[in-house]
Amino acid sequence: MAIEGTDLVRAAAFLGAGLAMGLGAIGPGVGEGMAAAKACEAIGKNPKEAGLLTRTMLVGQAVSESTGIYSLVIALLLLFVV
């Protein structure tokens, strides 16, 4: 089997895309879960503020999600651009 340079680069990019999205999904997954768990606790203690708490949880999770989106962007770049 002859190995060509462009083929090798594509192979590395595909493996890298898988690893980028895979590893990048660990942190946001755990972090967003923690945010949701604390929000449930907060509503349990203070149900009147449910709306405010839900909004805060979602904003916090969105920020936590951003690193997952960075991974997604890099994975897509590795797949289709590089």
Binding site: L19, M21, G22, L23, G24, A25, I26, G27, P28, G29, V30, G31, E32, G33, M34, A35, A36, A37, C40
Partner: peptide
């Protein structure tokens, strides 16, 4: 690998 984090996180939530 990508399923590890959401699995644990959903459990915590």
């Amino acid at each position: 690998i990508g399923a590890i984090g959401p699995g644990i996180g959903e459990g915590i939530a």
